[in-house]
Amino acid sequence: TPSASDVLLTEDAVRRYLIRKPMTTKDLLKKFQTKRTGLSSEQTVNVLAQILKRLNPERKNINDKMHFYLTE
């Protein structure tokens, strides 16, 4: 059972990160590590994919890597 101090993988949390700066999928996964959220790897991938589909962030390549970002 997650405690209040654990990291929550929510749409709002992802939105806040992507407004702050462009991030790769790996950057995002680093923010929501399984040991901090208590989710499995598969759950993390599935939930993050659903959130990104809903948010439909802008995409751009930085150093040949695809980054997502949002504007307010």
Binding site: T24, T25, K26, L28, L29, K30, S41, T44, V45, N46, L48, A49, L52, K53, R59
Partner: peptide
Amino acid sequence: SSSEADEMAAALEAELNDFM
């Protein structure tokens, strides 16, 4: 581990590729 992170990133990108 970083290889697990790589696998998760690849899985996530594969999920999103259908959508993008």
